[in-house]
Design a protein around this nucleic acid. Structure first.
Lengths: 193, 193
DNA sequence: ACGAAGTTTCAAAACTGCGTGAAACTATGG
DNA sequence: CCATAGTTTCACGCAGTTTTGAAACTTCGT
């Protein structure tokens, strides 16, 4: 990772300004993880900055702290709002819109798992089911060459399908666990094997 | 030089030629899923074609069936070999190298989980641990503004860290389950708590 | 040892997606 | 109803990735 860290920590108590070294490190780390998970890196960074802020921030705060353009902040925030991981906050007296991170991590995770992962895996499952239906007749073909090929493929696709279904069940389990709380999952993972 | 012709999809019994409709559908679906998972789409497509083939295929077979350039096939296969999800097969009498898909799906999955996901999450965990260490002193700062901020951030990062550790444990559990076999996982998922 | 068949490497082309900045739009206060 | 602060949208350009095609390299048969 970063080879050196300037030892002086500019813990600016001012609302606007650069991020502290720790904030930067954490938001970058989460940004990378998010990117790895298929989101835009800046979504992760922006969310983290909000999450680590003791109070809601304006678009401009975010622009300054993350060194992004106005437009980028707007678009990123919009996207995060769509995912329900950031909320708008109206502060009386304040003209500007403020934003805060959803604080319930499990709520976030389960939502992403539900909406994104499941959609993806469901498409795959559907495609494979269709393929199975298409191949099935050929497994009774006259031509032995055709038939054998069909039988092999039928078996293998069934194998894949089973795996995909297992994945779906795992996601289901995670999502419903997450809806309750994390401790159930923790207990499972640590407890009986 | 390759006039792509998605002609009628009769099950060509010839080894070389286009893919059947079902093969195409499944390999594209898996290609998309793989891409979603952060791999190249063609890695998924190529692996699937091998997996659905009753016998090992040559680089040229793959080039023809997937409509890729020679170079692309070579690079993709190499990468898949590195991941251990495709194996070289020497057929006596045959001059050309042949390739076959790793048939043990769990072996594949657990390897990917272990090598890729865990590395990523470990980095994140490390970054957050460092951030905690950096912030901790400030939670006892004189200046109440600085201190309060540090306390909030410390708490939140700890929260994130806990989540990340939980994720790591989940991956661990999956990997070790996968190393044995799938049925244990199936039992857990279906068996209920 | 030579040449044909097969495979890998690599630089450049093609593609993809992200962020920018400015213009359009909206809301608020005078 | 205008002026201004604030926000959203969008065409463009840049950067990172993927794909290609051809040249370099390896392997095997004669």
């Amino acid at each position: 990772m970063a080879p050196v860290e300037p030892s002086s920590e500019p813990l600016a108590s001012k609302p606007t300004g650069d991020l502290s070294a720790s904030e930067r490190a954490v938001s970058d780390a989460i940004g990378r993880l998010m990117q790895f998970w298929g989101f835009k890196r800046n979504m992760g960074r922006l969310w983290t900055v909000l999450y680590l802020s003791e109070r809601p921030l304006t678009a401009q705060d975010l622009r300054d702290r993350l060194c992004l353009s106005t437009g980028a902040v707007s678009m990123t925030v919009t996207e995060l709002l769509r995912w329900g991981v950031v909320k708008k906050v109206w502060l009386q007296g304040e003209r500007r819109e403020h934003f805060a991170a959803e604080g319930n991590l499990w709520k976030m995770i389960s939502r992403v798992l539900r909406e994104r992962e499941q959609a993806e895996i469901l498409d795959t499952i559907t495609a494979m089911e269709e393929a199975l239906r298409a191949i099935e007749p050929q497994t009774r073909a006259e031509d032995p060459e055709v038939r054998d090929r069909a039988v092999v493929q039928y078996e293998r696709i069934k194998q894949l399908l089973e795996l995909a279904r297992l994945g779906r069940q795992l996601l289901d389990a995670l999502v419903s666990t997450a809806r309750l709380d994390a401790s159930a999952l923790t207990r499972f993972l640590l407890g009986g094997r």
